Simulated assay, not measured.
Amino acid sequence: MLIPILILIFFILIMLSGPFLKKPRGSYDDVIKNIDITTKAVLSENWKLAEQNTKKLDSAWEIVIKRIQFSTERTEINNISLNIARLKASIAAKDKSSALIELSSAKEHWNDLGK
């Protein structure tokens, strides 16, 4: 009787840990910081910096995915991954408006992650 209750409690804790697990552990996995830096680079049309920060953003996101994969909805994870993929293409094309749309969408999905 005690083991099933402990297992249920364990799974509930995992499912509710999304907001805690998405917080950065260091600069290497700070998704929101990289989104903000990339946004500033795109606004100033510094495409080289935008490309560099998009790579950092992608690396940080891959680290965070491993932590949150069991505690958040898969569609939210996929949406952010798709935003980053589109962002890479927008920056390669030097399309300011498209890049800003993807950054804004990624930030909105990030804020909804774990709710």
Rank of each mutant, 00 (worst) to 15 (best):
M1W: 04
L2Y: 00
L2N: 06
I3S: 08
P4C: 03
I5A: 11
L6M: 08
L6H: 02
F10A: 11
L13F: 14
I14Y: 09
S17P: 06
S17V: 07
G18K: 03
F20G: 00
L21K: 12
K22I: 02
K23R: 12
R25I: 06
S27Q: 10
S27L: 09
V31I: 12
K33D: 06
N34G: 04
I37H: 01
I37K: 09
T39V: 11
A41G: 13
S44W: 01
E45K: 15
N46C: 09
W47L: 13
W47T: 13
K48Y: 12
L49T: 15
A50W: 02
K56H: 07
K56G: 08
L57N: 04
S59V: 05
W61C: 07
E62L: 10
I63Q: 10
V64R: 03
K66F: 00
R67M: 03
I68K: 00
F70H: 14
E73W: 03
R74P: 07
E76Q: 12
I77M: 04
I77P: 00
I80L: 04
L82N: 15
I84M: 00
L87C: 03
L87A: 01
L87Y: 04
L87V: 04
A92W: 03
S97V: 12
L100I: 10
I101G: 06
I101W: 07
E102H: 13
L103M: 09
L103H: 05
L103Y: 10
E108A: 13
N111G: 05
D112W: 06
K115N: 08
